[in-house]
Structure formats: C-alpha cells, structure tokens
Design a protein around this nucleic acid. Structure first.
Lengths: 217, 217
DNA sequence: TGCCATATTGCACAATCGTATAGCAATAGA
DNA sequence: TCTATTGCTATACGATTGTGCAATATGGCA
C-alpha cells in the first residue's frame, strides 16, 4: 500500500477549492447527497481535510452558501456599475444582466433554491439571506431614484422602496423561470419581457428602458 | 417489552398521513434531515410501514412533492374561479390570493424551494414541476385574455403568453419575498404592490385592478 | 543540502441510514 | 364469538455517515 501523493496548497486556494467542490456536489446531488467523502472526492482530497479547514462539514456547507451569495451579489453589483451614463441605461443594463448568462444559470438557481429551503429553520442561513436581500433591494433603489427624478416623478423613499420590491420580485421570478428552463419558451425573450414589464411597473413611457440598449445583442 | 399499540387506517388516510409527515419533516429538517425513521415518528408509525405503502423512502418523498404541488395548484385554480364577475375583478382576486395567506406561507415556500433544488438533476421532479408551471401559465393566460379584449387591446396568443410570463414572475417573486419574511417590510403591503405592478405590466389604467377589490380586506 | 512545521492522508469509531423480513395483533366478515 | 386477512411492529443487516487521531510526506527556510 502506497500513500496518495499530494500537494500543499495555500490556505485560500484550498479553502476555495473545497467550497467550489461543496457547491458542485450540492448542485448535483442536493444537500442530502453531498457527503463529506463525496465533496472531498470532488476537490481531489480526502475527507479528513474538511475538519482541518472548516472544523466540521456543516460549517463548510454554511460557508459555501455564504461564498455563493457573495459571488452572486458581487456580480449583481458589478453589472450595476457598468454603463455609467443615463439612469435609464443604468437600470436597463442591470435588469438585462440578471436575466442573461452568466448570472442566469441553472446551476445557480438550483443552488440558490436548495439553500433557500434551509433559511426558514436555520438562523445562520437566514442571516446570510437577509443581508443579501437587503443589499439587492438597496441596489435597486439607488438605480430607481435618479430615474424617477429624471422623469420629474415623485421619488420619496417609500415610493422607491415599493418600486424596488416589485422590480426585485419581477427579476427574481424571471431569473427563476429562465434558470429552471422548463423549455416552454426561449430564454432569448427574457430580456425583452423583463424590460417592458419593468417599464410598466415604473409607469415609464414605452421603450424608455429598451431603447438605450437597442443593438446590444 | 410490550409492542406498541396501533390502529389500522384506510389506505388513503395512512398515505396522506405519511405524505403530510414527510412534508413536515422536510420543511423542518430539509431533505438531508428527513430520514425514514424521523418521518415515521412524525406520522406516529414505525419506519417499516414506508416500504409497505410506497415501496421505498425515495418514492415516498417524490410522492410528497407531487402531493404538495397538487395542493398548491388546486388552491391557485380555486382562487381563480372565485368572483366570476368582471375580468379585472377575476384577475385581481387571483393575484391577491397568491400573495396572501393561506397561499402565502413560509412553510410552503421552504418546501417549494427545497424540492425545486432537485428539479435540475432529477427527472421525476422536473416532470412534476414542468407540468405545474405550464398549468399556472395557462391559468394566467385565460385570465389575461378577456381582460385585454375588454379594454380593446390586442390579445393574440403571443401577447397573452408574454404577459403571463411576466405576471407569473411577479407573483412568484412576491410570493417568495413574502414567504421568506425577511422582515424588511410588512406583508400587508404585498397585495397593493402586486396589483399596481400588475396594472403597470399589463399597461392598464391606474386602479383598474385595485378598484374592484376596494373594501375587501 | 537538510531539517522542521504542518498540510494532508489513512484509518477506526460510533451513530445513523434505508430496507428486508419475520411475526404479532387489530379488525372485518362469517 | 371465532377466524382469516393483512396492516403494522420489531429487529437485524450491511452500507454509509461525520469526525477524531496518529502517521506521513511535502514544501519553505536555514
């Protein structure tokens, strides 16, 4: 019997590799199928290493949820910064980014749903979720506010929050519909549907959000 | 040692009891924590009975997903039949019902999410989900079509489906937001937000959906 | 080059998993 | 009231679970 040869990685590299392996395993086999040994196999290490880096398997899975949410909110925040021109262009790009690859991904939707199922009864998951939700809502409000002002519309905080809640629901719902890919329609239609619906929700003139993106692809 | 006393129930009663126990267990402990013994304990029986009624634990959990979805679509369909008056009242009641208790329930959201996480990789779950989604979309289209006609608007199938997709996303998203209950706002606001957003998406005159429900709740 | 700190492996352990099976007991029908 | 059916319990089995611990080989540093 010969021992398995191995490399010593840096703390961050190994941690990330384990977290990615955890997400891969959860996305494929669910929380019930993602055993410590299977996750370790995904990461190319043995199960004992989990304890060394995260203390316990549950702690690693929790960390993986935080890792996933961190990636997703970072992507959302980044797509909100792009195209710093007119407010309508800003919001339009943000919306489209959320219903288009790579943000729209069946793997991410599956992971998100799997973890969301634990939010109700596990406080650690609830905390992570609540924070990310608040961040997304704030992001939307900061995009809506200048847009309302530009159209000389009331833009008090209550109004902005109401619009943000509705817009967030729309985006979440379309992201889910697209990611689940029931195959009832083509996901190429999603950006168009999302933008026209958002125009309606915000009571903006037709094509206000769609025009600035014309010819983008 | 004395054996546990027991009653012989009818096939349907025992099946439903086991399915409810499965959902209770999954909602509380997740798919990974819902073991055969724990589910049996919830149902007040011993684990061996699962094999007798469902063949295997996995088969029972799949049946529980179908059972849950069946309940939810039945409730949705029922709330669509109520108030058979003007088209706008019809749609308005349907929307409100979906963002109000008992349809809006944190337990149902948790269960839905947990199972949705398995749709991507398990064909049996995908089949159940796809069918229920198609049914919900059709339901929405049958509510939208007469409403568009009443306002002398184009109501071709493509237009109706686009509106249904957007409206479904909005309802799903608000249902999720409300059921997750992050406590950032009061869920009493949800019906108002849902109706005004729906008016916007469908490009209906303000208060078209809100007026017929004034004074209801 | 050689040594040392430690990242990593390998294994054992109790607990729990799903389920197959044998037999008890509750209930419907005679 | 007796009997036959079978719903249900009880138990055992092998596989798998998470994890604690000892041994080891690796890569940085003197």
């Amino acid at each position: 019997m010969s021992r398995k040869p191995f490399q010593r990685w840096s703390l961050d590299e190994r941690r990330c590799a384990l977290l990615e392996a955890t997400l891969d395993s959860v996305a494929e086999d669910g929380l019930s199928g993602a055993s410590a040994r299977r996750i370790a196999e995904h990461a190319g290490v043995t199960a004992g290493l989990i304890r060394h880096y995260f203390g316990s398997k549950d702690a690693m899975v929790r960390a993986a949820y935080g890792y996933l949410i961190g990636q997703m909110t970072a992507e959302a925040a980044q797509s909100a910064e792009e195209g710093g021109e007119a407010p309508e262009q800003h919001l339009a790009r943000f919306i489209v980014a959320n219903v288009t690859a790579p943000n729209l991904s069946s793997r991410k939707v599956a992971l998100w749903a799997t973890f969301i199922g634990r939010v109700r009864t596990e406080p650690d998951y609830a905390e992570i979720h609540r924070e990310s939700y608040r961040e997304f809502l704030n992001l939307l409000e900061t995009l809506i506010h200048p847009l309302l002002l530009a159209f000389e519309r009331p833009a008090d905080p209550v109004t902005c929050q109401r619009y943000a809640i509705a817009l967030n629901a729309l985006i979440d719902g379309l992201w889910l519909e697209g990611g689940l890919g029931h195959g009832l329609y083509d996901t190429v239609l999603l950006p168009e549907i999302a933008l026209s619906a958002a125009e309606g929700i915000l009571a903006l003139p037709a094509d206000t959000l769609r025009r600035p993106l014309a010819g983008d692809g």
